[in-house]
């Protein structure tokens, strides 16, 4: 995305910066690595600084963990399950949230290379790259399906989707199957669309009213970024719940 004198250019896909050993390197991949470094580094130093009598920051983190596990226990109906899925759900939230909050950080999207008269930003929020959102959607999807199969057994779980007892049951099962597969698309495009649209909106606002409009919109988009991270994590949680529910108790 670039705002040049001739107008606004919106690039749907992450820009290629080059390749290493035939492996493509895009700006969203670079940013993903940078955010990973940040998150893992912060987690490492925070994890080492834990004390039995917590400081304010540690207390806040612990409060969040406790609240999340309590909520997940309520949803999944078992603390054991909540503790098992907490790392996945929390990591989805943290990774997406940090990326979205850094989306408008100075330098992201504005520092770049000029290659063949084309401006290539070095960093691009991975949540505005479908590769990233689709990868997360796939991880979420497979976790949900594998959990369903592991909890209910293959045949019982498959029975949710392939029901030969009655025509209505068969149709319902088919619809369930399609909507289940559709999650891959809804998961990935919801996140991608929301964040990408936010960036485009800020860009357009900057074109119309350069000095005043973008800042409040950026604040709003950062809020949206948090919400989208929460939505992704919560939907994963709810679909896990749906997957482990016994088909006869589901309705």
């Amino acid at each position: 995305m670039r705002d040049m004198h001739e107008g606004i250019t919106v690039v749907l896909k992450a820009e290629h910066l080059g390749s290493v050993l035939g492996f493509p390197i895009t700006n969203s991949l670079l940013m993903a690595w940078a955010v990973m470094l940040l998150i893992i580094g912060a987690a490492y130093f925070f994890g080492r600084s834990l004390t039995l009598v917590p400081g304010k920051f540690q207390a806040a983190i612990e409060w969040a963990f406790e609240g999340a596990i309590a909520y997940m226990t309520e949803v999944l109906g078992s603390e054991r399950l909540a503790r098992r899925f907490f790392p996945l759900v929390a990591s989805i939230f943290i990774f997406i949230a940090v990326i979205n909050e850094l989306e408008f950080f100075p330098g992201v999207g504005s520092i770049g290379l000029v290659h063949a008269a084309e401006f290539l930003p070095v960093l691009r929020a991975p949540t505005t790259d479908l590769n990233f959102t689709l990868a997360l959607a796939m991880i979420s999807f497979f976790t949900i399906e594998v959990t369903g199969i592991a909890t209910l057994g293959f045949f019982k779980y498959a029975g949710k989707y392939v029901n030969l007892k009655s025509p209505i049951g068969f149709t319902v099962g088919l619809i369930e199957l399609v909507s289940n597969l559709g999650r891959l698309i809804s998961f990935s495009f919801r996140l991608f669309g929301n964040i990408f649209a936010g960036e485009v909106m800020v860009l357009v606002a900057g074109y119309f009213l350069p000095y005043f409009l973008p800042a409040p919109l950026m604040g709003f988009e950062m809020f949206i970024g948090l919400i989208q991270a929460l939505v992704f994590a919560m939907l994963t949680l709810f679909f896990i719940k749906l997957a482990i529910m016994d088909p006869h108790e589901a309705h």
Binding site: A14, A32, M36, I39, I40, F95, A135, L136, M138
Partner: peptide, 12 residues
């Protein structure tokens, strides 16, 4: 890229 991003998330 899909696999790379999946691996990234797995690492995180």
């Amino acid at each position: 890229l899909l696999i790379a991003q999946a691996v990234n998330f797995a690492l995180v």
